[in-house]
Nucleic acid binder design. Structure first.
Lengths: 144, 144
DNA sequence: TTTTGATTTAGAATAATTCTTGATTTGTCG
DNA sequence: CGACAAATCAAGAATTATTCTAAATCAAAA
């Protein structure tokens, strides 16, 4: 945790408004004049890889960053651009329902899942029988 | 519906594998040698605006295109990169459950909603009392 | 203190997408 | 049929977010 990483993380924690990398950069500069945009990108990536921060994307807009590690969805206001966290309605594994804040109007919802399709899950299963290592084969294929 | 648009649309309909713009371009070229990537982008945008096609994004990867207009989610295989459509488990408005294909392993799920936050919904409400036109005020603000 | 390795910086490079401009096609009307 | 207007297309330049590169800096260990 270097000074720059600490600062970038603090910026994210101070206002939980899902800033873009550029916005983080502007806020960080106020406190550490010499910091560069590249460093902000580096720090955001490091923090994301470390699991302290989540990268949030909507369409092809610039990525936004969120230090909320609880399971949640995101609500993007089409009018003012604000981004809110939305908590799950219950602890049933996230497949079912969200606590939409009172007054918000949802016009569209997008759901994306990531994982292994049947075929790849099967291959991994058989690979792990041979090697005993579940993650190795996936990593090997992912390297393509 | 011009020749190029028809072709791009047919390419999407032929294989429902969510190709990127470049992939659409490669397939389209086979049937209309002179078509350009810019035209493919134009056509995809036109088709999307017309509501015949949906643009599908995961993270910052190239956009993919999908002619399935039914409500559905997307499943991205982390190993082979395949993208599958996932149907809702019931017709309850999409808040609740998805028919994950047998054998698929979901490791992560992302939910994004778009709409109007409480404040903007309230403003629009009061605007429409004055003007009688719900969409005008939103459009005006969106133009910023 | 020197070394070592990681991190930061600035700017160049990249990749997807959009924009611009001129050419082409299409539809319409005489 | 032929001319004109409007829409569309093509080619390449431009844009934008992001990543890469290489040199400079820093921090901890020896």
């Amino acid at each position: 945790m270097t000074r720059q990483r600490r600062l970038v993380y603090d910026v994210l924690l101070r206002d939980l408004d899902h800033p873009t990398a550029s916005e983080v950069f502007l806020r960080a500069k106020d406190q550490l004049a010499g910091i560069s945009l590249a460093t902000v990108y580096n720090c955001l990536e490091t923090l994301t890889d470390a699991g302290l921060v989540k990268q949030v994307n909507l369409d092809r807009e610039p990525s936004r960053y969120c230090p909320n590690l609880h399971e949640h969805a995101h609500f993007f206001c089409m009018s003012c651009g604000a981004v809110q966290d939305v908590a799950p309605a219950s602890n049933d594994g996230g497949l079912c329902g969200w606590r939409i804040p009172e007054g918000n109007r949802v016009e569209k919802m997008e759901v994306a899942m990531r994982g292994l399709c049947r075929r790849c899950a099967a291959v991994e299963e058989s690979d792990s029988e041979e090697t005993g290592d579940v993650s190795a084969s996936r990593a090997a294929r992912a390297a393509n």
